[in-house]
Design a protein around this nucleic acid. Structure first.
Lengths: 233, 233
DNA sequence: ATTACTAATATACGAGTAC
DNA sequence: TGTACTCGTATATTAGTAA
């Protein structure tokens, strides 16, 4: 699996507690809870509810303000990311598997995307919407000829939208992140996204991949190595 | 909360185990797993993986065939239902507040729901949770065929829960009330709720509507008149 | 009313082992 | 290899209590 973020520090019981909070407060709002009430919904004692909230707090998945007669809690960005990771798993189970199988080979160009990926305006969205913080660089895949046509099928795959933004100097365009699985000789890597800039005229023959780890290392990839990219799977 | 099905008998750790199995086998297929491999994916020992599979099996959420060199497992219908319950919660957290547009026509059957609606155990809850005291009868809508499939999308709509209760003679089950708008030739009626019994096997092709007024009068409805029901709007 | 501590008890875990 | 026992130990839970 990989991915040792703060979310792994809490167990499934804590995550279920966070989910109940999110159901009540939404992802951005705050809600007043009492340990007794929360415990009842969780089928546990108020002490257990209290402890779970503390652990969620310690792990940074939840922010609390304890008052005399209860506490206001909000789900943090890290908490939202943790929940989204779970959500994406369930989606993979229940959603129609509209997947597009593409073939190609590793090509150079680890450099160009790197700069953009690591910009905070993008990185924040990756963390919140993809559920992980990508390695600051892209793996570029040069698509085989027969895959160029199939590439159009990617539009049927549900993508995660990344919004455009701007700083003082310039604007940065929006993009779409298509969930994908990368298959190489060295093994499979499940949590990959193909990132496609929305507006700019990019090279249709290349696919840029991001992932929690440096894919070249994780799969021991060599230059020009043949790959399969299962977009939407 | 209640809902004491077999699924509640297992903890969140077991459900997470079931999820991993579903990710590999799909909802219908079977997959060969080893406790050692499963334990690694779950960040636990093989003994723990073994115990979790046993408990899932005991709870009827998973079917196993243990062979000499591993075991084939499949997610049962009850297991799928348990996972779907989780999934629906995540959808409510992450999905946009959806509305489902259903079409159908007025049908008779004003009678059956009438008795239940007017029972004080329900009527009190309607007053408190829906904000009005419904006319003591339901408008039954026979759904058009294309709307039958869309009906499943209603589960993503946030409903008002009506608790079950009992008197000396019998028990009355819980139900869900989905906020809806009714559109007919005679006009629109905004404050409608589609009431769906929770447990009992009810007719999926019919939708029972309650509202502060008698809908037949308020919208001057005729038998078999075509209607639109916007659930969640 | 709350939250959260302490301490007794129940449960879960994993090493070792049998088959 | 595999599953699934037993059993000593670690962790989680909850009643009681303090603030």
């Amino acid at each position: 699996m990989s991915g040792t973020t703060a979310a792994d520090a809490v167990g499934h019981d804590e995550l279920a507690t966070l989910r109940v909070v999110a159901l009540d407060s939404g992802l951005t709002g705050e809600v007043k809870v009492s340990c007794a009430g929360l415990g009842e919904r969780l089928d546990a004692s108020s002490q257990t509810a209290s402890r779970r909230l503390q652990r969620l707090d310690d792990a940074g998945l939840l922010a609390r303000e304890v008052t005399g007669d209860g506490q206001w809690v909000t789900v943090t960005d890290a908490g939202e990311a943790a929940l989204r990771r779970e959500y994406e798993q369930y989606r993979r189970i229940f959603e129609e598997p509209t997947s597009v199988e593409l073939r190609g080979h590793v090509t150079s160009g680890m450099g160009e995307g790197r700069h953009y990926i690591s910009l905070p305006g993008y990185m924040e969205q990756f963390r919140d919407r993809l559920g992980y913080e990508p390695f600051p660089g892209t793996l570029n895949v040069e698509l085989a000829e027969e895959s160029l046509r199939r590439r159009a099928g990617m539009e049927a795959v549900e993508a995660v939208a990344i919004d455009g933004w701007q700083d003082e100097d310039r604007t940065f365009g929006p993009a779409s992140c298509y969930p994908a699985t990368l298959v190489a000789d060295g093994g499979r890597y499940e949590t990959v996204h193909a990132i496609v800039p929305e507006r700019t005229h990019h090279d249709e023959s290349q696919l840029e991949l991001i992932a929690p780890d440096r894919l070249r290392d994780a799969l021991e990839l060599e230059d020009d190595e043949e790959l399969e990219v299962h977009v939407g799977a």
